[in-house]
Nucleic acid binder design. Structure first.
Lengths: 165, 165
DNA sequence: CGCGAAAATATTACTTTGAATATATTCCAA
DNA sequence: TTGGAATATATTCAAAGTAATATTTTCGCG
């Protein structure tokens, strides 16, 4: 990325502290889209669950909790609501009967598709402030952070292979 | 940053969606440090407030809510607790009597100093997985995102200049 | 001026979250 | 093979968050 390095010699310690920069960038970037979601009657957590299962993922509750950044008890209750509303269904694993797989229903898929369009549109809007290579670099940086922090590995292991019919 | 571009052609839509990458990077990067904080008896929100005021910032409640990513009512209650515990104090602005400035007490400053050391140590640990230029590039990307999204501007306007003695 | 709209913070009432725990199942070592 | 540790999910309940609203003060305009 070839943007001039800025020195925020401002005041607070937080002005150049990695965890704050990440949290703030995430919050500020998401703000507008999250407002759209709520206006259309969806909570952020519901959206994250739907999006993580889109288009055809089948994940255990635990794996889903990780991608969605939700604690397991929070997720379980969200799943209750969404299952009741016909957006997804739970399938008990036959191999390990402790595990529960989650997948979208056709109805859930349809709703998600619509929101994914909104999400992509919003993403384009944000990245439109950057050149193509800059935009690529932003995602690149985030991908490598996640890799180094050993995030993705754990998750892909949990993706259902063939179990749930 | 010169890390090879990885294609997560995995499965889910979210695997290359900016807002998810940001939220996940933030969560995963913070995980360990936030656990440290809780073990030492501090909530994340309390830490954010302390850190935002360190070393000698004087911010209004509203400005503080923004940097800390807290809703104003949430912050007000946290400030009640922290003021009660002697970590900070509120000073009513004389220019605009609606505004309330917040600043650390010496005791709050001392506690924060200690935690800031932990935070910096943790940050080094995370960035140690990268070369110097890569690490710089990570922060660079986040700074430019925040700039383009028009974050910092609003905040610096709210920093107290000379009002609270 | 004076009054209605806007702004900053506090308060209230309700909802959501999550740490701790329970339950069910699987894994593993003796 | 069996009993204890580990794992996956569900449940519970106290704590934290927040939308809506109240309160106080300032601003802008006729």
């Amino acid at each position: 990325m070839t943007v001039e390095p800025k020195k925020y010699a401002e005041g607070s310690f937080t002005d150049d502290y990695l965890l704050f920069l990440l949290a703030q960038a995430s919050a500020v970037a998401s703000e507008a889209f999250h407002a759209e979601l709520r206006n259309s009657g969806l909570r952020v957590s519901t959206w994250r669950i739907l999006a993580s299962l889109y288009p055809e993922e089948v994940l255990t509750v635990g794996a889903l909790a990780q991608t969605c950044l939700l604690k397991q008890p929070t997720l379980t209750r969200a799943l209750d609501r969404m299952e009741r509303d016909g957006l997804l269904k739970r399938v008990h694993s036959t191999k390990d009967r402790r595990s529960v797989f989650v997948k979208l229903t056709p109805q859930g898929h349809e709703l998600t598709q619509e929101k994914v369009h909104m999400a992509k549109s919003h993403e384009r809007r944000i990245l439109s402030g950057f050149t193509k290579p800059q935009a690529a670099e932003i995602k690149n940086v985030l991908h490598s952070l996640l890799d180094r922090l050993g995030h993705r590995k754990k998750l892909t292991e949990k993706r259902a292979e063939t179990d749930p019919l």
